[in-house]
């Protein structure tokens, strides 16, 4: 049976409303304040230690993001922590919040499809995150110009923009997951806790699980030998990459460090003829990070599609 009209009728009305809500919500202001403080602190500290070597590093602006200065971790490390939180905060009450405010049936009684509601909320969340990230990145760059006195080069800007895209995709994964739970659970507190639990699991426990599993695998295989060793490392890497955190950190590693040439084990024979200390061009780094980057985007699409199906089939009545 075919429905008349476009499923996107009213999409922009929903997007604009949700975007305005996010930008003015207390929740987002707290998070943005937090991110701002972290950004200024880490970048300031990094700039402090980089001032000595300004002339020597061709990618000083990328170093600004990745350098850690005790006791502060690097900007990127902090982002890996704060971006999932932002994603979760943007979406954990997207659907159940409408039910709880009793606005859902009134909203769906307007001449729009459900598609527009869910899609609009998701797009608005991404837009909010993109706005925050872009502002943040401009701030960091501005701070860098002030503290280092060097103008960023195009290749640094390019890598920076791809870093933003990867971060957006990473945040999108957690946002899609939070949205999925906001469809399945009727209480916003439950969906928030469920998403945080999944995030904690991947952030803290997944590496432990991977190590345990690969130890078991090593026991099963038993025999030594380079080939088996290599196979074990491959398995470990594969398992580890099931976590969006690993995918993100590898993508960022490749994008922000032009001297990184491989994200897995490299045999000494493969390094034959390599010129040490040379930097990869941007597109080569992109190729390197491509599988991780697309995997992140695939995870966003899969999670969102699942939430979409569940929402379409949900009864309007509580």
């Amino acid at each position: 049976m075919k429905r008349e009209g476009s499923p996107w009728t009213g999409l922009w009305a929903v997007v604009l409303k949700e975007y305005a809500d996010h930008l003015s919500s207390v929740r987002m202001r707290i998070l943005e304040g937090l991110i701002l403080v972290v950004a200024v602190a880490t970048v300031y500290a990094a700039a402090q230690s980089l001032r000595q070597t300004v002339g020597e590093d061709p990618f000083i602006y990328l170093k600004l993001l990745t350098t850690s200065q005790d006791p502060l971790p690097s900007f990127v490390a902090f982002m890996g922590f704060l971006i999932p939180l932002t994603g979760i905060a943007l979406a954990f009450d997207a659907v159940n919040g409408e039910y709880n405010r009793r606005t859902m049936s009134r909203l769906l009684a307007q001449p729009i499809y459900r598609d527009a509601v869910l899609m609009g909320k998701f797009v608005a969340g991404l837009l909010t995150m993109a706005t925050t990230l872009l502002g943040l990145w401009l701030l960091v760059t501005g701070l860098g110009i002030l503290r280092l006195g060097v103008i960023p080069e195009a290749r640094e800007v390019g890598r920076g923009l791809f870093f933003l895209l990867a971060t957006l995709a990473y945040g999108g994964v957690w946002m899609a997951l939070a949205m999925l739970f906001s469809v399945t659970y009727r209480q916003p507190a439950t969906s928030a806790m469920a998403t945080l639990a999944v995030w904690l699991f991947f952030a803290v426990f997944w590496e432990i699980v991977v190590r345990l599993l690969s130890n078991v695998a090593a026991l099963v295989v038993m025999r030594g030998g380079t080939e088996n060793e290599l196979a074990l490392v491959q398995v470990q890497l594969f398992l580890s990459r099931l976590s969006p955190n690993t995918l993100y950190s590898e993508t960022v590693l490749a994008l922000l460090n032009p001297d990184v040439r491989a994200l897995g084990p490299v045999l000494i024979t493969q390094l034959e003829g390599a010129v040490r200390g040379t930097m990869l061009p941007l597109w080569q780094s992109l190729v390197l990070a491509w599988p991780q980057f697309t995997a992140l985007i695939a995870a966003v699409i899969l999670l969102f599609a699942y939430a979409y199906i569940l929402f379409q089939r949900q009864e309007v009545r509580a």
């Binding site: 075919k2 429905r3 008349e4 009209g5 009793r102 049936s105 009134r106 729009i112 499809y113």
Partner: peptide, 14 residues
């Protein structure tokens, strides 16, 4: 089949 046409013309107060 035509939910938009219906919802454009019908007001609902839950």
């Amino acid at each position: 089949r035509h939910p938009l046409q219906v919802k454009r013309r019908v007001g609902y107060l839950p």
